[in-house]
Design a protein around this nucleic acid. Structure first.
Length: 521
DNA sequence: AGGCCTTTGAAGCAG
DNA sequence: CTGCTTCAAAGGCCT
């Protein structure tokens, strides 16, 4: 492992093995009305403290742990939504593999009020509501309950690194709160606690892996639980509904419940393949649909969606996702690291559960393939719009051009040539909350920094290209976000299954449409 | 009823 | 190797 944080780092990046970290409780100190609606729930759920104890990492047994439930305190695992914790056989366990220390009891239900964001963070110190509420900035929570960030980002880098903005904002700047000196300090020291309740429906995390056992609430049964790699219950991976009963049958293993699948149908997804057999061929029906594991951003969205929905009146996911995308970029790197780590575990678990699964199977599924994106014209079409209307009339561009934000490349290329990075073009998204307004204000105030090339790296890969420049030699080197290491199936992958290292960052400088990283050379 | 929108990241495929 | 495409979640909107 070329980087300092190999598997050993996973055991030292904040949580000593064998030690027990007491979960810091993030509690809303505010007294607004917002608390009212969940105060009762909060009180009720301040009944447990979950301590996560990691046992020593062993080869082939990368993650075994023990979860113990205490009383009197409501746990908040950083961004992990705590909630009512039902004592479960898995509350104390020692699983052999990939058991994530993220108890997500109650399906991710969160004891803290949703709409408190308006008065936390920002109002307190001009910071983000994403950050510590109530001014409790003194001590960060455990990194991610035993999962150290891939590496410790030095504060300077954390302060300076912003990613290429994906969204237009008033003033042509991107609201990177991290650019604020205050926020840089916060970012360097804090993990974002998830302070918001997540409705059970939208809650926490879906159960991407087979679930079948009806728990208590039928409406929640498919959402709250996910099964463990051992299929014997216990803590599920990461975020989601952690307590997962063993599936009844193998068929259950391949049953995915998701809102999208259940959309418009009262039948579960498990039944759906048979229902839609008319349109699907038999082969496809035989093969249950195994969904892709959620990536880091998806996990983040899952957690934060309810919060944004609560803050905003709008419920359209498209708009919500835009906001979440902004916040994702505004998120500190350590925060993101947690999600990357979780996503990595998701993939590992998924791989363990479905060794033969390939995403190709999903793309070739009976479902009507989504329309191809401008393949007929190829990339030329994108250039046509730009050439046709120019950058100043991007509203004239065709949808795909705008959607793919090809202009970003163009603009970034120009900016790179000029030594600065300009903004991407996207349909404007007005902020829905005070927080977002503040985000924009912050970005305006710090637009100069934001426009520096250093801050233009896309997340998170873009950071890699720049981090070395930004970080002094004495700083811990970032993990090599090399392409090789990202695919656990890759034989060369240092993070192959069975290993758990701190390396969790995605490919370096992965070029994405509209999210291109400008290499600084 | 089902696709679209919208986001980021992962993975697969084509050239 | 690079770039493109699809899918993962979500829910209102649109056809």
């Amino acid at each position: 492992m070329p980087h300092a944080h190999s598997s050993s780092a996973a055991s030292s990046g904040g949580d000593d093995l064998g030690s027990t970290d007491e979960v810091k409780v993030f509690k809303d100190e505010g007294d607004g009305e917002d608390e009212k609606r969940s105060s009762e729930n909060l009180l009720e759920e301040k009944s447990s403290l979950i301590d996560w104890t990691e046992s020593e990492e062993k080869s082939g047994e990368p993650y075994s742990g023990k979860l113990s439930v205490k009383s009197d305190l409501s746990p908040v695992f950083g961004f992990f939504s705590p909630g009512k914790f039902e004592p479960h056989p898995a509350a104390s366990f020692n699983m052999g593999y990939l058991m994530a220390p993220y108890p997500y009891p109650n399906g991710g239900a969160h004891p803290l009020p949703v709409s408190m964001t308006g008065k936390m963070g920002l109002s307190a110190g001009g910071g983000l509501s994403l950050f510590c509420p109530g001014g409790e900035l003194g001590q960060p929570p455990p990194a991610h309950m035993g999962i150290p960030p891939p590496y410790q980002l030095d504060s300077k880098l954390a302060a300076g690194l912003a990613r290429t903005p994906m969204y237009p904002f008033p003033g042509g700047t991107y609201p990177y709160p991290m650019l604020s000196p205050e926020m840089s300090q916060v970012a360097a020291s804090w993990h974002t606690p998830s302070m918001y309740p997540i409705s059970s429906a939208a809650s926490g995390f879906r159960s991407p892996y087979p679930t079948s056992l009806p728990i208590t609430s039928s409406s929640l049964s498919s959402e709250l639980y996910r099964f463990s790699p051992t299929l014997g219950g216990g803590l599920g991976l990461g975020l989601g509904p952690a307590l997962v009963p063993p599936p009844h049958s193998k068929a259950d293993l391949f049953t995915h419940h998701s809102r999208s699948q259940e959309k418009g149908s009262s039948s579960s997804s498990a039944e759906k393949p048979a229902d839609s057999s008319a349109s699907n061929n038999k082969e496809q029906n035989k093969k249950p649909h195994i969904k892709k594991p959620l990536n880091a951003f998806m996990l983040y969205m899952k957690e934060m969606r309810a919060k944004v929905v609560a803050e905003c009146t709008l419920k359209e996911s498209a708009a919500i996702n835009q906001i979440l995308g902004r916040r994702w970029h505004a998120l500190g790197r350590e925060e993101q690291a947690k999600y990357y780590e979780l996503a990595r575990r998701e993939r590992q678990l998924h791989m363990q559960l479905y060794p033969d699964w390939s995403s190709r199977a999903n793309t070739q599924r009976g479902k009507k393939r989504k329309r191809k994106q401008e393949t007929t014209d190829g990339g030329n079409n994108l250039k046509k719009c730009r050439a046709r209307y120019g950058l100043d009339q991007q509203n004239q561009w065709c949808k795909p051009c705008r959607r793919k934000k090809k202009c970003v490349r163009y603009m970034e290329a120009l900016a790179a040539a000029a030594g600065t990075v300009s903004l991407p073009m996207v349909t404007p998204q007005s902020p829905c909350s005070e927080e977002d307004v503040k985000l924009e204000e912050l970005s305006d105030a710090s637009s100069d920094e934001a426009d520096t090339p250093l801050n233009s790296a896309s997340s998170p890969g873009g950071l890699s290209a720049l981090s070395s420049l930004a970080s002094p030699a004495s700083d811990p080197p970032p993990p090599p976000r090399n392409p090789v290491g990202t695919n656990p199936r890759d034989a060369n992958n240092p993070l192959s299954v069975g290993q758990l290292t701190s390396q969790s960052w995605p490919r370096a400088a992965q070029a994405r449409p509209g999210h291109e990283v400008i290499s600084v050379s």
